[in-house]
Amino acid sequence: MAKVVIDREKCKGCELCTLVCPQNILVMSKSFNKKSYHPVEQINPEKCTGCAFCAMTCPDVAIEVYK
C-alpha cells in the first residue's frame, strides 16, 4: 500500500513526474489550477508502489509520498 499526495496549486504541469513513474499512473489533469496550469493527478492509485521517483523529480516539491 502506498499513496502520493499532490499539491495541485504548487504543480506547474511540467510533466517530469509522469515520465519517471514506473507504473505510468501519473497523468495531466484536464482541469486548471489557480495559476492556469494543468496539474498532475494520479490514476489507478492501487498500483502505486511508493517508489517516490515522482516526488524526487518534481521541481516544485509538490508531491508527498506515503507507504
Binding site: C14, C58, P59
Partner: peptide, 15 residues
Amino acid sequence: PFTYCPGCHHGIIHR
C-alpha cells in the same frame, strides 16, 4: 511556491 519556470531544475536543487 517557487518563482521558477515549469520544469526548471532550480527547485530540485533547492530541495
